[in-house]
């Protein structure tokens, strides 16, 4: 077993580590890639062994063995015929796999539009008509056992969408829509991260995919798309938080469904309270981190687009945090 030096966090659990997520697939669009990887490693190890053995013979072998190796025949066999055979086989497999993984989209899958932004992810669940029925950010919910088509777009620079346990990566390019399928075969949280250098805090641009049992997912979607918001829990700070959200400027950039807050520049906060992470997959989501993020996110994720709100008092921050925690 791999030695652990850390206790794993929720974010860490989701985002990777041991076993390597590439080799630990959780869906049919990642399974063959893991299989391919293992075969490739095996072949590579074999070839390396052959080369090193040949080199060993060339350097230290007996005169007879060396003589057999020391001619053009060795080149023809080792350098031409052997690679030609192995590579042909690999190429056939690789190309077929490419073909099957890029097979045309059927059209009846659930669709989600994911837009890469500097440095977070805008998520819109699309209805049958292609219109967005639900907005969210940085956390993608999918049902287990069925393919989900992602329409990948970018609002600014090139990003790349990558959830290693569910699929390979695909770039999000301004002016283009790239289609990608993911599918999870078991409920769970799967981490992802931007894989294309997108400037500044590219390192801190993560997200999570949460897979639910189909009925749970249906319930979740139904609750969220329903017009009425669940009642907010009673808390003395709640009203002030709500008011601050409007007056302190939050609403100019953020949206909370069912309230007057309709900003679209920043992530949608309608369901912030349920999210696993804060700041696009980098912080745990709790009241303290919320306060810290609101108060001065620049100290946490330098260069991100949210200004520091250092003029808010701790009471204000707490009120806002309480209010946002209640958004479920």
């Amino acid at each position: 077993m791999w030695p652990r030096i850390s206790t794993r966090s929720a974010v860490g659990d989701a985002l990777g580590g041991w076993p390597p997520p590439v080799l630990d697939p959780a869906g049919p669009y990642a399974d063959p890639l893991a299989m391919l990887s293992w075969v490739l490693f095996a072949i590579a190890a074999l070839v390396l062994l052959v080369v090193v053995a040949a080199l060993w013979v060339a350097l230290f072998g007996s005169a007879r063995r060396k003589g057999r190796l020391g001619g053009t025949r060795a080149i023809w066999i080792g350098g031409v015929a052997f690679p030609a055979v192995v590579l042909s086989a690999l190429l056939v497999w690789g190309l077929s796999l490419t073909g099957s993984l890029t097979a045309p989209i059927r059209g009846d899958e659930m669709r989600v539009k994911v837009t890469g932004e500097m440095w977070w992810w805008r998520i819109a669940y699309l209805g049958r008509d292609g219109q967005a029925v639900l907005h969210d950010a940085n956390e993608l919910h999918i049902p287990v056992g069925q393919p989900v088509v992602l329409e990948l777009e970018s609002a600014d620079v090139i990003h790349s969408f990558w959830v290693p346990r569910l699929s390979g990566k695909l770039d999000m390019i301004p002016g283009r829509t790239n289609m990608m399928r993911i599918q999870a075969d078991e409920p769970g949280v799967f981490g992802g991260q931007c894989a294309e250098y997108c400037g500044g805090p590219h390192a801190l641009m993560g997200f999570v995919v949460v897979a639910h049992e189909p009925e749970d997912f249906a319930r979740l979607m139904a609750a969220r798309t329903a017009g009425a918001r669940p009642p907010l829990p009673a808390h003395p700070d709640l009203a002030r938080g709500a008011q601050l959200f409007q007056t302190a400027g939050c609403a100019a950039c953020h949206r909370i469904a069912g309230t007057g807050a309709n900003g679209i520049a920043g992530p949608d906060l309608s369901f912030l309270g349920t999210r696993q992470t804060l700041g696009a997959g980098i912080l745990p989501n709790n009241r303290g981190t919320l306060m810290g993020w609101i108060g001065n996110s620049q100290a946490i994720k330098p260069g991100n687009r949210m200004p520091p709100y250092s003029m808010l008092s701790s009471d204000d921050l707490r009120a806002l945090a309480v209010y946002l925690e209640a958004q479920r």
Partner: peptide
């Protein structure tokens, strides 16, 4: 294990 290129840092707890 999932570490992208061109990252100036990474979060702990990911082995």
């Amino acid at each position: 294990m999932g570490m992208p290129r061109r990252v100036y840092t990474y979060l702990p707890g990911r082995d």
